[in-house]
């Protein structure tokens, strides 16, 4: 019952961005993947979500090899990506975006219950349910992207830089929600440059630099590590 990456290599054209990443996300946990811009964090997530075919290595979900599957097949196995660019449906309403989040599901009652769940998590989205997604603020768009991901009732949420471009107070709010999401039983693979915020909510962390995992440990251990403090926590 674990999401595992073993020796993932990936890149674009001639560029080798990810050079052998191995990590594990146990069920119901938040695992942070930290590192500077360009380290290969987003590329790693794109591989897991099926948007990019790896050049080597394996992604295993409960032992099944899923690397190279198309994104819709990955989603149906219980992995939902919330990408850095959010990739919302801009002229559709908040409600329609959420509805499409549940596209792969057929259980109407379950979908309705999960809609209530995400509205309880992000009350702002309920207020804005008839507004087109493009009219939302940056923070609201991030909430909608996370909520849309949750509407597929994933076992694993793959979150790419949720803090990007948001004010500090809003970042705190979003990260508090991640703890609530974990309480619902969804595991999170959290890619972040904001290591301080990520390590406050994560159970475990990995530090990725130039495509290679440099450090790994419990969130508390990483937060106390001198190298991590110097490089990412100031």
């Amino acid at each position: 019952m674990t999401l595992e990456l073993a020796g993932i290599e990936a890149g674009y054209g001639g560029a080798r961005v990810v050079q052998g990443v191995s990590l594990a996300v146990p069920p119901g946990r938040i695992v942070a993947l930290l590192g500077p811009n360009g380290a290969g964090k987003s590329t790693t997530l794109r591989v897991v979500a099926g948007l990019l075919r790896p050049r080597g290595g394996e992604v295993r979900l409960d032992g099944e090899r899923i690397a190279g599957l198309p994104p819709d097949a990955v989603l149906r196995r219980g992995l939902a990506l919330v990408p850095e660019r959010r990739e919302l449906f801009p002229s559709l309403s908040v409600a329609e975006n959420l509805d499409l989040g549940a596209y792969a599901r057929r259980d109407r009652a379950g979908i309705a219950a999960d809609l209530e769940m995400v509205f309880a998590l992000f009350p702002r989205l309920r207020e804005r349910r008839t507004q087109p997604a493009r009219t939302l603020s940056g923070g609201e768009q991030q909430m909608l992207a996370i909520a849309r991901g949750l509407m597929s009732r994933p076992r694993y949420l793959l979150l790419d830089e949720p803090s990007l471009g948001l004010a500090p107070l809003l970042i705190e709010e979003i990260f508090r929600k991640l703890v609530e999401i974990r309480a619902h039983g969804t595991a999170i693979l959290l890619v972040e440059q904001n290591a301080a915020a990520a390590l406050r909510v994560a159970d475990h962390g990995y530090v990725l630099e130039t495509g290679i995992i440099r450090l790994e440990g419990s969130a508390a251990a990483l937060a106390a590590d001198d190298a991590v403090r110097d490089a990412y926590l100031r």
């Binding site: 819709d72 939902a80 990506l81 990739e87 596209y103």
Partner: peptide, 20 residues
């Protein structure tokens, strides 16, 4: 709805489980 989603954003459509 799958068609409209692809019109709006193909990447977004793929990540909600629509086969583009």
């Amino acid at each position: 709805r799958a068609i409209v989603a692809v019109y709006e954003n193909p990447t977004g459509a793929a990540i909600v489980g629509i086969s583009v």
